[in-house]
Structure formats: C-alpha cells, structure tokens
Design a protein around this nucleic acid. Structure first.
Length: 200
DNA sequence: GTTGAGCGTT
C-alpha cells in the first residue's frame, strides 16, 4: 500500500514532481538545481518557457525520486528567497485533478474541440499580447494627455497673465512669442496636427 | 527593458 506516489505520466519511474512558483523570470534550472539538490537527488528540472520568446513563465518543476525528499524540499524551500523572490514549493499535479491517472497516463477531460477556439486558457501571459494592447492604449492615452496638458497650460498661462498684469509690456512681448491669440486660438504653433481637429 | 496568478516537456 505504498502506491501513493503519483506525479504524472512518469509514474513508472517513481518520480515525484514539485511545482515551484513565484520564481524569478530569470531563474533557470541551473540555479534551482543546487538548491533542490541539497534536500535530495533531483532527477530533472524543467522550466516551462515560451517558444516564441524563450523566457521562463515564472515557475519550474523539480522531479525527485522519493516522496520524502520532495517533502523535505517543500518544507525547506517553500518560502525561501531565491533570486530576491520568495518561491513557493508544492507538489505538482496534472490536469484539473491529480487523481485521474490511468496506467501512468492522465485522463484529462478534453474540452469541446469545436466551439470556442479562444476559450482555451484564462492564463495567457505572453509579451505579444500585452505588448500589442499596451501599445494601442498608450497611443490613445498619450493623445489625451497631450490635449489636457495643452489646455491646462493654456488656461494657467492665461490666468496668471491676468493676475500679474503689472507689466503689460513684458507680458505682451512674451505672449506674442507664445500665444498669438489669447482667445479662440484658430491655429496653434504645434506640430501642425491638432489633436482636437482629428476626432477618433 | 517590461509582468506576477498559476501547473509541465522529452
């Protein structure tokens, strides 16, 4: 009755997989090997990484030969600070539940092959994704920011000019260089691209 | 160069 070992498709190897979370993005298996090797014989360490960029996703899998070593590693490395980040070590599981194992193979429920092709995974941490989104959002945000900034500056300048109307000559000279039309500015000495003119 | 909940390849 010592068949409590279950760590995936490689159960025949009697290997227990540990899931290491919260690891730095720059941490590699080479850095975790000596750390986990102190608590037991590490069979192999695998760090899922993106195939497009090649960067790690922020978690790793450490495989042990015995559950005892794995437990020791979890108890010893769980909460340890690695590369400046507190990692979390716990037993890895396959599929939604690690109890659906059949002949060393995981019986994972396959979602509908037809229907939603986008509803694949809620976790999609890829650079291209947020990069594209951020890029678009930044473009709009920048445009609005410039518009508000321009308006604010104009108002402030105008108000201050009126309050400090002690030297009309000085102000007028500066005004002529900055704002040709204090009221209803038809054209602005800008990039020749009016943010207000271009309506989205 | 960037981020931070979670579960993996020969």
């Amino acid at each position: 009755m010592s068949h409590f070992r279950r760590s995936g498709p490689q159960e025949n190897r009697d290997t227990f997989s540990l899931l290491v979370l919260n690891v730095s993005f720059r941490t590699t298996a080479d850095d975790l090997l000596p750390l986990f090797n102190r608590y037991g014989d590490v069979v192999d360490i695998y760090i899922p990484r993106d195939r497009r960029t090649g960067d790690s996703r922020g978690f790793a899998f450490v495989r042990y030969n015995y559950e005892d070593e794995a437990q020791y590693a979890v108890d010893g490395l769980d909460g340890r600070k690695v590369d400046g980040r507190v990692i979390m070590v716990q037993f890895a599981k396959y599929g939604p539940n690690a109890e659906k194992i059949h002949r060393g193979r995981i019986i994972e429920e396959i979602p509908k092959p037809r229907d939603h092709f986008r509803s694949c995974s809620p976790r999609r941490r890829y650079r291209d994704d947020y990069r594209d989104r951020d890029y678009r959002r930044r473009s709009r945000s920048k445009s609005r920011e410039r518009y508000e900034h321009d308006r604010y500056r104009d108002s402030d300048y105008h108000r201050r000019s009126r309050t400090r109307s002690v030297s009309p000559d000085y102000d007028r000279k500066h005004n002529r260089n900055r704002i040709p039309s204090p009221k209803g500015t038809p054209n602005r000495p800008r990039d020749g691209h009016s943010p207000r003119s271009g309506s989205p």
